[in-house]
Write a protein that binds this DNA or RNA. Structure first.
Length: 964
DNA sequence: GAGTTTGAAACT
DNA sequence: CAGTTTCAAACTC
């Protein structure tokens, strides 16, 4: 904190370390690369992902039950050490003293969670691929250095420290009520906040304990007992998952550690380093509750502390795990120096695991081995994290995002809407696993799911915390855990198969299958029962040999697992060649055959639509090609849209659509309406003046113009929109953007004449608007993150509401605006000292100066704007922000003007020309080509790591050198 | 659990 | 590109 220089140095070191080893060097990526004919694309992705490579690693194969058990102890120790360290640091660092009242305020404001995300982001940015050394340093700092140094050691920590510092002064002055969590960069100091809260509790505990020294030792035991009895007593047995972080097995140690920490804190306090601090309301309450006896008092306090501490340090632990996992990944990448670091990393990783993870590990597994090397796995309690903390959600989302652009329907969880959230999260965990990379298709959905579930959970937490502080937070956690609890047994099945040795496992699985082939029916039934939760598809193919798109597994780009009931299955690792050939063949017919089927679109329906479907599903998501239902009325799973929990769209050819997630008619109507609304300032005027749009005049002009500044309405800024709007009024190309280009379908939709860019003066004005918007984004990037995580449109600041909306568009839907903004703004504002990555950070949260980006996994089909170099201040490989955004924003807008089914170009070449008119970047007259780049990404057997298989197509958007 | 329905995928 | 067939999941009984 006091040594920013140090932090910077660390950062740079980290960055370099990260950058130096190309991700593709990772065994995992090597594997993928070897398989993939199109290395360049992957390479780029990988490189960009490097900073954030973790996702695949973090989320281990769901079907693999990692060595979580062995990690329990270590994890506890880790937590313990973390807590102790933190406590010590706090104690030693005078500056670490935090005003409890402040933290309370924060809690009340619900800022903690929000800020935490930022901090996480920052953390990832700064430690995207934290080198082992860096991590070690980080860890070492915590242990060996005093608060000050340790915090300064790493940016994130530094931020935390800053936060603390900022809070500190207020505490002393009692003037400031709000911490400066999000610094100008929109980076929060959630860690600081978290820590702060903890510290507050500690301080409080110190005081209390000081006053009643005799309770020093006892409280802990009481706490233990209490925990033992208390948690289980909870109606929701699953609370353990969410709340029992670190409690499960090594509770004692942790508690002891906490006790020690508290003790030390008391001592420190005794030294007079700390000031008398007001009791946090919650603690006070606890105190009240237990005021009857001294021991009880301490107990309550300690309990609070412990809980908070666990929570906070669990977060830390998670963060560490993430870092470690990243580190591991780096190591995997082949850093020659990794040996030592590796050991540390492994230790750290192991330490990172926790009893909680044991319980939750099933939800998220990161199979490092499967990933590539002998690395240990990082078991990130994803689900828990996701549900419990925005940062995790954030992270998870981020992590998952890189993996894919869209959702392949086949990867969709067949969950009932009721269970959607839980399922989603679960599934996410499942799917995100696979260091081999799971099918790209799955990822997007995962992202959505993660985001969604996270959002819900986070929102809940937010609300709760805002209302009542700790207790409520705990409740929120409980809620979250409850959601987790709904996780199906099926998942556990998946985890049953360790992924330690992917190959062998797969073989074993195969052997098992061969020797004891479960009856298809049986399995099928099992599948059916677990449909809602299984993270991976389980097929029941009998004739297709699982080598056709009929096979969900194959279509999803994953190996069939032993849980499949398929017969004569060739979708196994040992048939990689066959699979690859088949995939290639299929892709030759339809380059997008393996492309995600579900893509993000601009939320067409009002937030208050009230449709459950919209609530439980990515409202903006749509089936890329649309369904073709004739009899099911889109009310059954026969309908792919319904199955994907998305509404039908204009691209659907369904008859009598009654899709609860959105009827086609509604979509069309809304689309049309929205498109009109979405107009740039100029466009608005023109539209208003346009005789062809008489009805617009009827609409409220003022509002219309006002809406111009709503990010949502920035979208129409695109020429294509204008064209379309002035055109047939058809929903066609409502929002074509760079992003939209990701789908060849979109491209195909656009008439060539529309594709042609009409770069008009308007663009400049539009760009202006975008610039302004971007400024908002810069300022509100922090809020964006929160919004994104929570999925809530509303944000803390009204100003950011706009941003949040925009963000909505950007992240969860077609993000043409962002893309445009990115491309446009960055070019313009770079000179204005507007850190591009900053904006991207705001937009993409993780997009940073090349370390953290949401990059489509090389394993997944994705759109890549490799041709937009000029758009970025950095080269593509550096993975600078907006490019990433473009890449990762899979939303593929597919709207067929004639409502004719938009199907992938049949027999078309992989190259599609994109009209510049629809591209933000095309304003410059560039043309882009969407290339289907067949690759052979490691497919992730969702459960048993049978290895990667099949090829996947990467959709690479390249600038066409031939400009018209 | 068997049979039917459904719609996507594959084929012609 | 439309029509048909194949296929496997979803669904029903």
């Amino acid at each position: 904190m006091d040594s920013p220089e140090t932090a910077q140095v660390t950062i740079s070191t980290t960055t370099s370390a990260i950058d130096s080893p190309p991700v593709q060097d990772s065994p995992f990526f090597n594997y993928a690369s070897n398989l993939s004919p199109i290395k360049p694309v992957k390479t780029t992705h990988v490189a960009q992902i490097s900073g954030f490579s973790s996702p695949p690693i973090v989320f281990k194969s769901p079907r693999t039950k990692q060595h979580s058990e062995t990690n329990v102890l270590k994890r506890s120790q880790c937590l313990q050490s973390s807590f102790t360290e933190a406590s010590q640091n706090v104690d030693r660092g005078n500056k670490c003293i935090v005003d409890s009242g402040q933290s309370t305020t924060l809690c009340q404001q619900g800022l903690i969670i929000e800020t935490q995300k930022d901090e996480v982001d920052e953390f990832f940015e700064t430690h995207p691929c934290s080198s082992s050394g860096c991590i070690n340093e980080f860890l070492a700092d915590l242990e060996d250095e005093d608060c000050e140094n340790s915090y300064s050691a790493t940016p994130s920590l530094k931020h935390s420290n800053d936060a603390l510092g900022s809070s500190q002064s207020p505490s002393n002055n009692s003037k400031e009520t709000t911490l400066k969590f999000g610094d100008k960069n929109g980076m929060g100091a959630d860690a600081g906040t978290e820590l702060e809260v903890l510290l507050v509790s500690l301080e409080q505990a110190k005081k209390d304990i000081q006053g009643e020294p005799k309770s020093d030792a006892e409280p802990i035991k009481i706490e233990e007992e209490k925990n033992d009895s208390e948690w289980p007593s909870n109606e929701c047995p699953n609370i353990r998952i969410g709340v029992h972080v670190g409690h499960a097995s090594k509770k004692h140690e942790c508690l002891d550690s906490l006790a020690q920490s508290i003790e030390s804190g008391c001592q420190t306090d005794a030294d007079g380093t700390s000031k008398p601090l007001p009791l946090p309301s919650q603690i006070a309450q606890t105190y009240k509750d237990h005021s009857e006896d001294v021991g009880a008092v301490s107990d309550g306090i300690v309990e609070n502390i412990v809980r908070q501490g666990y929570k906070a340090f669990e977060n830390f632990g998670v963060r560490r795990r993430c870092l470690q996992y990243e580190e591991a990944h780096l190591n995997t990448i082949g850093d020659s120096d990794s040996s030592l670091n590796l050991a540390n990393t492994v230790d750290s990783l192991e330490l990172s695991s926790s009893a909680t993870e044991l319980e939750t590990s099933e939800l998220c597994h990161v199979d490092s081995k499967a990933t590539s090397s002998e690395q240990h796995i990082v078991n990130l309690p994803q689900s828990t994290a996701t549900l419990l903390h925005p940062r995790y959600c954030d992270k998870l989302s981020v992590l998952s995002k890189p993996l894919g652009i869209g959702l392949h329907l086949n990867s969709i969880v067949n969950a009932s809407p009721m269970n959607y959230t839980a399922t989603a999260s679960k599934k996410s965990a499942d799917q995100n696993v696979g260091p081999q990379g799971m099918s790209s298709s799955m990822t997007d959905y995962n992202l959505l799911e993660n985001t969604k579930s996270c959002s819900m959970s986070v929102t809940t937490v937010k609300q709760v915390s805002a209302c009542d502080g700790e207790t409520n937070v705990i409740k929120a956690l409980i809620v979250a855990s409850s959601a987790i609890s709904e996780l199906p047994p099926i998942v556990q099945e998946h985890y049953a198969a360790p992924d330690d040795n992917r190959k062998s496992n797969s073989q074993n699985a195969d052997s098992l299958e061969e020797h004891d082939p479960p009856s298809p029916r049986k399995k099928r039934k099992k599948t059916a029962n677990s449909v809602g939760f299984e993270g991976c598809k389980r097929c029941n193919c009998r004739k297709s040999k699982c080598l056709k798109l009929y096979c969900d597994c194959f279509a999803a780009g994953i190996y069939c697992s032993d849980s499949c009931a398929c017969q004569d299955c060739f979708n196994k690792s040992e048939y990689e060649d066959t699979i690859r050939e088949t995939r290639e063949q299929i892709e030759s017919r339809n380059p997008l055959a393996f492309a995600p089927k579900i893509v993000q679109r601009i939320p067409k329906l009002p937030p208050n639509n009230g449709e459950d479907g919209n609530q439980s599903t990515p409202s903006s998501a749509r089936h890329k090609r649309g369904c073709n239902c004739k009899k099911s009325m889109c009310l059954k799973k026969y309908c792919e849209c319904y199955q994907a929990h998305v509404g039908c769209s204009s691209g659907c050819r369904c008859e009598g659509c009654q899709n609860i997630f959105g009827k086609k008619e509604e979509y069309v109507a809304m689309e049309h309406g929205v498109s009109r609304e979405m107009v740039s300032n100029r466009a608005c005027k023109e539209l208003l003046e346009s005789p062809s749009e008489p009805d617009i005049e009827e609409t409220n002009r003022d509002s219309l113009c006002t809406e111009l500044f709503n990010p949502h309405y920035l979208t129409p800024v695109t020429p294509s929109f204008r064209h379309s709007d002035h055109g047939k009024h058809a929903p066609k190309s409502r929002l074509l953007s760079i992003r939209n280009l990701s789908s060849p379908d979109d491209l195909s939709i656009l008439p060539s004449n529309e594709k042609s860019t009409k770069s008009s003066p308007r663009d400049l004005e539009e760009s202006h608007i975008l610039l302004e918007t971007s400024e908002l984004l810069n300022e509100c990037s922090h809020d964006w993150q929160a919004d994104y995580d929570t999925g809530a449109v509303g944000s803390v600041s009204s100003r950011c509401d706009v941003v949040s909306h925009m963000r909505d568009l950007t992240q969860l839907s077609d993000t043409p605006p962002i893309s445009m903004i990115s491309s446009t703004l960055f070019r313009r504002k770079d000179n204005r000292n507007v850190p591009q990555n900053q904006l991207s950070h705001g937009i993409d949260r993780l997009s940073s100066s090349g370390t953290l980006q949401w990059h489509g996994s090389p394993l997944t089909p994705m759109t890549k704007l490799s041709g937009t170099k000029s758009h970025q201040g950095h080269d593509l490989d550096s993975g600078s922000g907006h490019n990433d955004i473009l890449e990762n924003e899979m939303p593929v807008k597919i709207s067929s003007p004639n409502k004719k089914r938009v199907s992938p170009p049949r027999g078309h070449s992989h190259v599609r020309e994109l009209g510049s008119g629809s591209l933000g970047g095309l304003r410059s007259g560039r043309k882009f080509i969407l290339k289907s780049v067949p690759s052979f990404p490691p497919l992730t057997p969702c459960t048993d790591s049978k290895g990667s298989t099949g090829t996947q197509t990467t959709y690479k958007l390249e600038e066409n050198s031939d400009k018209k």
